[in-house]
Structure formats: C-alpha cells, structure tokens
Nucleic acid binder design. Structure first.
Lengths: 210, 210, 210, 210
DNA sequence: AATGAATGAGGATTCATTCAT
DNA sequence: GATGAATGAATCCTCATTCAT
C-alpha cells in the first residue's frame, strides 16, 4: 500500500505519478524497472518516491488496483448480461469486451503482461491472487450453466474456469503483446472455444465417439 | 556452448559442476541466479567458471541439453508406441511418462519451469524454440489422428497441439513446482483431456448440443 | 559532460574533486588510471564518482575544459598582441607564455602530456580535435605573415603550423614532463625556430645555397 | 630477452611464433594485446608462452630486434652511399628507402607505430632507446655535412637530427598507419625538408631576411 | 619440456535505500 | 514534507601468472 503521503497528494500530482509509472512499466519489464526509471518518468525527486511508496512493488501493486477498477467499470455492461444468458454462449462477448478494453488502454494491458513474467516472490504471490480471483469468478458462471443444463454435470467447473482464464490472461495477453491483430486473436479464441465446447473427436452417426 | 576446457574436464568434476549448477537453478529462478551463486554451489573459483562457460546462459543452455537427452532416453519406449495407436488415446501415457521422468529427476524438471519465467532475450528465444519444437511434434500426431478419422477434420491441429503443449509444459510444470501430488496432477490432466476430447456441452438424446 | 549533480556540488567539494583527479592523472597515465585510483585521491565513495561523472573519460574531458579556460585567461595578453606584429617574430613570446603557464600550473600541463599518449578511441578523437584546433589557429597566423610578406608564398602554411604545433604540444610537453629546465627548453625551441625561419643550409656570399 | 628454450626451438616453430605474434601486435595495440591473443595467433599452449618468454614485453622486444635487423639489411645499400654525398641531399632517398621497407613489410612497420603509443614504463624506456639511437646516427651525418660545408656551423646537429627523426619515426609512421598514399606522404616530407633546408622567411634582393 | 587447468585480485558500473538539510 | 546527495555492496567479466601432471 502506498503511504498516506501519497494519498494526501493533490489529484493532478497523483495522476501524473500514476501515469508516469505506467509509462515506465510499459517501457520495461517489472524486473528491469529501476527506481531511477520511475522517478525519471514521473518527474519526482528520488526522496519523494520513498515518501509515497515502500518500494517498486508497492507502486506496481497500486497501479494494478487502479487499473483493475477501471477495467471493472469498463466491463460492467457485459458482466450484467451474464446472468441472463448461458455463460458459455456469452463468453465470446465477454472476451471481446476484454479485448476492447485492452485496445482502449493498451498501457494498462501491458502491465498485466509484465505481471505474468516476473519471478520476484511478491509478484508470484500476486499472480496467484489474480489467478484465484479470475478462476473462481468464471467457475461460478460455469456452475450456473451446469445448473441450467448447458454444461454437463460431470465437468469440473474449476478446470474449465482455469482453461478459460489462462486463455484470456496468458495466451491472449501474449498475442496482444506481440502485436497480433484482433482478427487473429479472435480466430484463435474461437477455435479454442470450439474445442472446449464440442471436443475434438469425430463421432459416428449416432453421436458416439469412435 | 561450454568451452572445450569444460568438456575436457575429468568426468567427476564435470558431473560435480553440472549437479552444483542444477542445484543453483533449482534454488533460484534463472534471473535471480548470479555467477556467485553458481560458483558457491559448484565449489569452483570464479575464474574457473569463465574457463568453462561463456556466461550464465551458456551454462543453463548446456544443462538443458543434458536434461533433454536424458529425457529422450527415458521417454523412448512410450514414443515408440505412438505411431501404432491413436495419439489422442495414448496421450495420457505419454503424459504420465513425462510425469514419471519429473518424479525421477525432480531437479531437472524445475529447470524447465524456470525456463518459462525469464525475461532475458536469450531465454525468450529459447522458450520460443522449445515451444515451436513441442507444438510441431504434437501437431503431427494430431494430424495423423485426423487422417485416421479419430479427430474431426475441422479442428485446427496446431491449436490442439498448442493446448496440449501448454498443458504439459506450463500447467503441469507449475503444479509440479508447487508440490502437488501425482494423483491430483493426473486428475487435472484427465479432466482437461476429457474436455478437449468431448467438449463441455451437454447434448440432447440425439447427440446435439442444446 | 559531468552530471548535474557534480555542478550542483558546493564549490569546495567540486574543487577538491578536481584537484584530486588532477593528482591522479599526474601520478599515472590516462590508460593506467582506474576509478579506484581516482576515488582514492578524491576521497569520495565509489558510488559518488558515478553520481558526478559518466566514466573516466567524462572526468578527464572536464578537467581539460577547466584547464583550457585557465590557460586562455593566462595567455590572453600575449594573444592580443598577435595581430600587431609579425607572428613569426612573436612566436617565441607566445611559446614562453605557454611555458610560464606550464610552470605556474605544472599539474595541468601534465594532463596535456597524458592526452597524447592514450590508445582509447575517445582519447584519440580528442587528440585529433585539439590538434586540428591548434594547427588551424597557427596556420591563420602563418598566412597572415605570408600576406604581409614575412613568410614566403611557396611555403605550405598548414605544414609550418603543424611543425610549430608539434613543437609545442609534443616536444616541449615531453621535455617538460621529463623535468628539463626552462633554459634548456627555451634553447631547444629557439634552435628549432631558427631552423624553421632560416633553414640549415650554408649560403655562398651571394646568398645562394651551395 | 626470450628464454633459452625459445632459441633452442626448431627454426620453423620459432618463425611461426614470431609471425603469429607480429600478427597479434598488428591487430591490436601493445596495451590491448593479451597473452591469450598471442597464444591464439601463435597456436601454442599457454604454458609454452611462459617457457619461451618472460612476458608480453619480452616478446615484443624480441620482435623489434628481429625487425630492426631486417630493416638494416634492407637499408644497407642506401646507407652505404651516405658518406659519399651530402647527407641533406641524400636524405629523401634514405627516407624513401624507409617507406619502401614499410610498404614491403607493413606488418613490421605497424609494430613501430604501436611502440610509440604505449604508456607502459618498459615501452617508454624502449621509445627513448630507439630515439637516442636514431638521433645520434642522424646527428653524425649532419655533423659530416657541417664539416663539408653544406650545413651551417651554427646549427645544432642534434636538434636537426631530432627533427628528422621525429619526422620519420612519428609523423610518417602515423600517416602510414592512417593509410595515406605514398604520394601524399612524400609531398609532406618534401615540404618539411624544404623548410628545414631553406627556412620559411622571405629574403630581400640581397638575400637578407626582412 | 610441454601442457592447459586453476586462481583470485582487480576493473567498470549499477542501484536500492538512507539521511542530512 | 521535500529534496537529492551519499553510500557501498553486488554484479559481471578479464587476465597474468603459476603449477600439477
């Protein structure tokens, strides 16, 4: 958590610091970023940095909170539709909303990417936290679909949730980071969803695997 | 490539160094490892390290080669059965052989884990290399199954291969690293395979999704 | 260029560092000097050195700038007389002023000596820079004397300038460095100038070479 | 002095080592050359190097001796003519013979260049040694011309010798090293010689300086 | 004599964090 | 609170020389 001093800062200064730091964490991976990089991008004195934050992780963590909130606001409309229709059919639109968010705030998205490629113990804990959060949310939706009969009862909801979460939080994020076009990403996701929904095996005329 | 000096070393010393270094790369992530850590674990002078290897990456790369060979030898029996039966049915045994290998040489396995969590350009290249290798191998098997009629023709073989590869090279590796039991890992893989094979959707009595 | 931090330092500290470093570059040749030598003479921590300067060259370059300025101030009176009388006659006084400066600030002078004996690419560039500067300045004076009729038109002004510059910047500097007395140096220069002005050949009674 | 072991080596091996080392000292400046570079170019074991030579300087010094001998043999014809005609008129052909030698054995010549650009105390002593040698030889010739009446008695022979030696051993060597064409080098030398012989000053109709 | 592995003292540079003003 | 100078441990890598075989 940033220190009180940071929260007591006039809004415009707080914003400037957040934006500067997002800039830094876009330019460089988390591990590569030094305090010197940050204070350069934020244009604050070195001493001030330690007045506002414990250390690099404290700041990164804060940025992620901020972004998380923005994302939630952005995604709200889609999430609200979630309970009314089968989740598994709405998932593509959920995913596309996520992609829209990424395109609208590419700098935010890159932070997420960097989160997944750090080995610092603090960061790994954070990865696990976000992972658990995302998976449990998706698992609820899957269970809903199971109750409604759209998804088979013998399927482990958590595992489907995990697959979907990985798809979004890792594979898509990587493609995005590598500069792939939306078309290609969407095609990729659709293919994977097709597999998850219907499986890969050929069935005979009675609908049985051979 | 390690320098000639290294290869000319008496076997017991070469082994000691390899084992020491594997120890280091187990204890710490690739990025965290310093040359000082390595020479401590190998009990060699600093100068000697640079007599044997170009740098940290050179050593890590060498260890991976060694392990790769050991793994190939270990897996040979299973791989030989591969062409005779449908791949998708044999996959669990392929996977279990991998798990056996991991259990037999847990320290080797952890290196693979660390490979996937480095930001160093050299390492990223290596990740891509191994990824491409694994995916293309699996894709061939999938295509074989498509020709034999076990897998639907409208499925993108590369994407299935990617899913299976990720499963093995990333998800399982992570579970292993986190200390999960074989039972749990196998259950996880079986569940995922079930999904990949049959999909998650419930079908009506005519075998149609609803 | 030294970093801002250096220029913001209190004067006495800046002076102490400059003097310490001049001490180092007197004691040892540029190539031999290590950062460890410098921080020892300046009595500053290793980290501080890099707060003030990019590297060894940055510091050396700065010292040369400082000295250059001091020298210009010192030489101004002689340089001002330069346009009023034939340069070739005034040259000895120009040279002697340089020698006076060297005697007044012997440590400064030695830096100039070391400048000419380094193999570092940066230093070679610097040598060429100073060489070109000195030669072109002297060549202008020589051309002036050619216009005034003191020096023959068939003489290559740049070559004379080069000879004079070498005399000053290299031969005299070396003698000075070797601890020769002013008398001897002046005698040496006078002899060389005599040769440059009148040549070495004996002439017959009609003023013709034989 | 190389060790006895070196001199006891079969001729072809001795030659190979000399040639290899000359290669090294061409590729790199004296200060930059490491023992590793030398044993690579000579293709000898590291231990052998220290069986043959005390250290890098010992080898370099030896090479210079060898080259000096070759040069003397090459220059003998011109040097023999030296006593029969005025030296100052023969100097250009002496100089041109030197240039021919340089063109014939460019690798030898470069060693001389590197000799002049090292700050190692040993090397400085060597510079002084060669300088004294060259100057005293030239001074003898100049004194001969003074006795014969070609050069004025009031000229300091040593100083003329110094000027000529520097011209050859430093300026020309540098031009050669920088890849200048013979034409340009010869023009440069001719200009300097003209100045040294006749001076730069204009004379009135009676042959007096004005 | 020949070999080449062993050694460890340097060398340059970076950086998180503290602390005096 | 704000500032930015100060610090020194850490990091990578090089190399002359020795010494065991």
């Amino acid at each position: 958590m940033p220190k009180d001093t940071f929260f007591r800062l006039p809004l415009h200064k707080k914003k400037r610091i957040e934006e500067g730091a997002i800039e830094t964490f876009n330019r460089l991976s988390y591990d590569q970023v030094t305090v010197a990089d940050i204070i350069y991008d934020c244009d604050i004195p070195r001493g001030s940095f330690y007045m506002y934050f414990e250390n690099k992780f404290d700041l990164f963590n804060h940025l992620l909170q901020v972004i998380q909130q923005d994302k939630m606001t952005f995604m709200a409309p889609v999430l609200n539709r979630m309970t009314k229709e089968p989740f598994i059919k709405l998932y593509p639109s959920l995913f596309k909303a996520g992609l829209d968010f990424a395109r609208s705030y590419p700098k935010f998205y890159r932070l997420g990417y960097h989160l997944f490629y750090s080995q610092e113990p603090d960061m790994i804990k954070m990865q696990e936290h976000f992972m658990a959060l995302g998976v449990s949310m998706l698992a609820e939706y899957v269970k809903g679909d199971q109750r409604s009969g759209y998804i088979r009862e013998d399927i482990d909801a958590t595992i489907v949730a995990t697959m979907l979460h990985q798809l979004n939080a890792r594979d898509v994020m990587a493609m995005f980071y590598e500069g792939k076009e939306d078309d290609e990403i969407i095609r990729f996701v659709d293919e994977i969803l097709k597999i998850i929904r219907y499986g890969i095996e050929r069935e005979d005329e009675n609908g049985k695997s051979i």
